[in-house]
């Protein structure tokens, strides 16, 4: 079983981030252990393979259109914010005006069955709960980094 120190030395030597002392230490360890020698060779093989690979270039038009696409996204984001913001304010004002009126007429009208009254109140509470839940999720979910778990800082 190769210890963490030796594995870190192999990585540092492969990636050329080692000191002369690191290299000497690894060479000594490799000279004394066939397992270390094999692992070093195995990792070297991978390094050789990956070092002869590179990104595949997209077409030149991709770069020509890139900034314009970013600009369009930015513009559309502002447009959506305006549309959604305006709609939200209108909906809020409408509900503020309509809901109390609807509730008053529902409860003042003695011909309405109790089950209908309960159902209307349940729907209103449900909508309110959904709105609160969605807002809370939007505020918290995107701030979570999937790497946070198990990473010592």
């Amino acid at each position: 079983m190769i210890d963490d120190r030796t594995l870190a030395l192999i990585m540092a030597v492969l990636d050329d981030e080692h000191s002369p002392e690191d290299l000497k230490e690894l060479e000594d360890l490799a000279a004394a252990s066939a397992e270390v020698r094999d692992e070093w060779r195995r990792q070297q093989r991978v390094k050789e393979a990956t070092s002869t690979m590179a990104w595949r270039e997209p077409t030149a038009e991709t770069w020509d259109r890139y900034w314009m696409s970013v600009y369009n996204k930015t513009e559309r984001k502002i447009a959506w914010l305006l549309v959604l913001g305006g709609s939200f304010v209108l909906a809020a004002v409408g509900l503020w005006e309509a809901v109390p009126h609807m509730l008053r007429s529902l409860f003042n009208d003695s011909s309405q069955p109790v089950s209908v009254r309960i159902a209307v109140v349940a729907i209103l509470l449900g909508v309110l709960l959904l709105v609160v839940s969605v807002i809370r999720e939007q505020l918290t979910a995107n701030r979570k980094d999937p790497y946070d778990k198990g990473v010592s800082r």
């Binding site: 963490d4 594995l7 990585m11 980094d145 790497y147 990473v151 010592s152 800082r153």
Partner: peptide
């Protein structure tokens, strides 16, 4: 956003 040791162990 991780320590260097974590980077090296992930690389390994």
């Amino acid at each position: 956003g991780t320590p260097i040791g974590t980077v090296m162990s992930r690389l390994y």
